[in-house]
Design a protein around this nucleic acid. Structure first.
Lengths: 215, 215
DNA sequence: CTGTTTTTGTGGATTTTTGCACAAAGTTAC
DNA sequence: GTAACTTTGTGCAAAAATCCACAAAAACAG
């Protein structure tokens, strides 16, 4: 077995797929399934089986030929690869409808993430508690609180107009990764990890496909 | 000028980028900017300028050499390409925290989409109205209401366990596209357009990047 | 009208991603 | 112990996506 991972560049698409595999492996583990073959998993994920094997091959050999993969073991390994063998501390900026939904989702978020701080710019909200218990802080306190609580990932759920400001404050506070729900391209320094979640783009994709199908 | 579009397969990534371009063009139009060059737009979108020109080239020639693109004209063309020169009728299934956030976002969703029906499985919610005015229907009525209202896009914001059921009912009701917020791969017939919005996958990507950065 | 400047549109090289196809490795049956 | 079977891991070809670099086209200056 190859012990260490290859340090060659690993495609983002591979990481995204690993995340998807882990989700199905969790479901399988819960159903009590012990072993799964790449063909079966591929079918569930809507992905080519060779792709799964190749994705895993970047990091080592986790299967047994003629058998498949031990579900729990593979799940553990993938979570380790993704860095989910710890709890990541997150801060949420913006408690509008979306922010509230995210906080409420907290229990649904798979093990590995926790909101340790919540911020809003609206003075009427500051000082209240969200249903899951966290006190809403003023954005003015962001730098202090983020540092004190050791936040690692910032989640931006503000309107587009405030998102860059939020990003700036998170960055100066030492946050190294941002999950951005605002529909703008954040300007961040080299080395910052940013992921955008943007359902309007997905809707536009659907509109296009439907239009093509007809036209 | 090439009149018709090439019917060669156009990359999904191109459509996604067109959506992003349209967003920035809207902002520019609002700022009163008349003309923009691919270099400038590329910078805003964080994309290579040649990529923008090639994306547009799939559909025709929209710029003027030595000048750039007329903002309003290009915006109009892109919206036409994406199929946004009409209002798409959507139905929302699941009025939990996320569904409520989506409905509330309604006014923020860029021109082109409208929720015309809302469904939930919880009898306590059925019959009430959401803040934007729509009556919450029982999922039992889904087929009838979706047909009556001429819904074209279904939006699934249910828990994962109910998502496939929701998809099934939407499909038999004649919906041709689904925006899925549940963290599962929906099983749908050939030809159905499905887009998944999944922030846990994005979070996992961030966790991986942070882990790599340290290790 | 000619030369200079700008920016598009695109041929094609480069890089990246995907997936076929098969040897290698392990299991099962007898 | 051997043959038949299964499924992984991977070399390599094919496909797709990206981006460089430059000719073509338009504007403008003198």
């Amino acid at each position: 077995m190859r012990s260490a991972m290859k340090f060659s560049k690993i495609p983002t698409a591979t990481i995204t797929r690993l995340s998807i595999y882990s989700r199905y492996l969790e479901a399988l583990a819960q159903e009590g399934v012990k072993i799964i073959a790449s063909d079966k998993l591929a079918q569930k994920c809507g992905i080519n089986p060779a792709q799964i094997r190749k994705d895993l091959a970047y990091f080592g050999e986790f299967g047994i030929r003629g058998v498949g993969y031990f579900v729990k073991e593979l799940l553990f390994e993938i979570r380790r690869i993704l860095g989910l063998n710890k709890i990541w501390k997150m801060a949420l900026v913006g408690i509008g409808n979306l922010g509230s939904a995210l906080i409420a989702h907290q229990n649904f978020i798979r093990q590995g993430y926790e909101f340790v701080a919540v911020f809003d710019i609206d003075p009427a909200k500051v000082g209240r508690r969200v249903p899951s218990g966290q006190v809403i802080h003023s954005v003015e306190e962001l730098e202090t609180v983020v540092r004190d609580k050791g936040v690692e990932i910032g989640v931006i759920a503000t309107p587009a107009a405030k998102a860059q400001m939020a990003a700036g404050r998170l960055i100066v506070s030492g946050v190294k990764a941002i999950l951005n729900f605002a529909p703008i391209q954040l300007q961040v320094p080299e080395g910052m990890a940013v992921e955008n979640v943007d359902f309007t783009v997905k809707l536009d994709n659907l509109a296009y496909k439907l239009t093509m199908g007809e036209g």
